[in-house]
Design a protein around this nucleic acid. Structure first.
Lengths: 202, 202
DNA sequence: GTCTATAACGAGATAGAC
DNA sequence: GTCTATCTCGTTATAGAC
């Protein structure tokens, strides 16, 4: 690896992905162009096409890298924490980190543009959500067994609800430019899964 | 009104909005063009520019009409129902209706594209969410007073969470092409607000 | 109000030199 | 691996006839 990048830098291909990723997360896949990336990196559009022949290919690689990184983050959470509640909290933290620099979750953004995406990208987006939900189901199941989590539905339905809630909270918090909106939603979500006694009516 | 539309039809301006609205909800504001509308209505692009000089103006009118219709639907709910829980259920029903024909909430879609929208549209989108949340806060407050709703946070935070959860559930359900995913999330949402006793651990 | 015609620009993509 | 140059197409928008 180090031999392939003697400068200690990050290869052009990766720098292209870095820029494209941010542009998709901020503006959307349909609202950025090769020209945007080229200008930012100080190269030409033709050079970009050498690394990623078409925008569809670029988008595909984008999702692939993002999913791999997210999967690694989940594995790291598993290695670091054992309490299911703590894992859920860490999960929402991953989303908060993305939102902190004005970005939407890559696949949340692509979900909005879903109907306009190439088939391969559509499949990859759904695959990402499936991966998230599978991980969540494991956490929920263990929390249920330990008795530290109280679910109102099946682990599958609850996992789906969690992903949707976090994606939606990000979506709207970004419009308000207020990360607290996301945090408030995440807190309520965790509370609803760990406590069965909300503020009672007097 | 009838005098302005003697044919009993819906004036060209409204038909343009109808088509544009659906295109935005399905594909997004950045992924449709005047040519798309023109082809569907059998008119020319120039004709569209007569009614809506620029795409920014069209988008603005789109949000305005959508917000007005949504506000009317909420008023109708208030007139028809009195139980806060029933009102919340009707609220989720409005979202389900949109999702049923493959559409995303107009403003949920625009929230994803927020960073690329003209300032006037950005303001209108936030205004729509504010309207939704104000209405929800009223319902939540009454439910709290009656003791039929149990909130885990302030009415403001809860209202925000509800909107985010429904928008997020729509966003993802659409990618799966499965409205049941939305329904499952909506059910859990209502359950978490009306019951403090989820399936207990054995 | 709708049309034809066109301007002015940016998009994704390719050929071929270096 | 990056460049210049170019192609083709689609985009928003306008001018002016009917």
């Amino acid at each position: 690896m180090a031999l392939e990048q003697p400068e200690g830098g990050v290869g052009t291909s990766a720098r292209i992905l870095d820029t494209a990723e941010r542009l998709v997360q901020v503006r959307g896949f349909n609202a950025f162009s090769y020209a945007d990336i080229a200008q930012e990196l100080g190269v030409t559009k033709a050079s970009l096409h050498y690394h990623y022949p078409s925008k569809a290919v670029l988008g595909q690689e984008l999702i692939g890298r993002y999913a791999a990184r997210f999967g690694a983050a989940l594995a790291e959470v598993d290695a670091r924490l054992s309490d299911p509640r703590a894992k859920l909290d860490a999960f929402t933290g991953l989303y908060a980190d993305v939102l902190r620099d004005q970005r939407m979750c890559l696949c949340g953004m692509l979900a909005a543009e879903y109907q306009t995406l190439p088939k391969t990208m559509q499949t990859a987006v759904v695959c990402f959500f499936n991966h998230c939900e599978t991980w969540l189901q494991g956490v929920l199941r263990e929390g249920q067994e330990r008795g530290t989590l109280l679910l109102r539905a099946s682990t599958a339905d609850t996992a789906q609800m969690i992903v949707g809630t976090l994606e939606g909270a990000m979506l709207i918090a970004r419009s308000y430019g207020d990360i607290n909106r996301f945090q408030a939603a995440a807190t309520q979500l965790l509370t609803s899964l760990t406590s069965d006694a909300p503020t009672p009516a007097p």
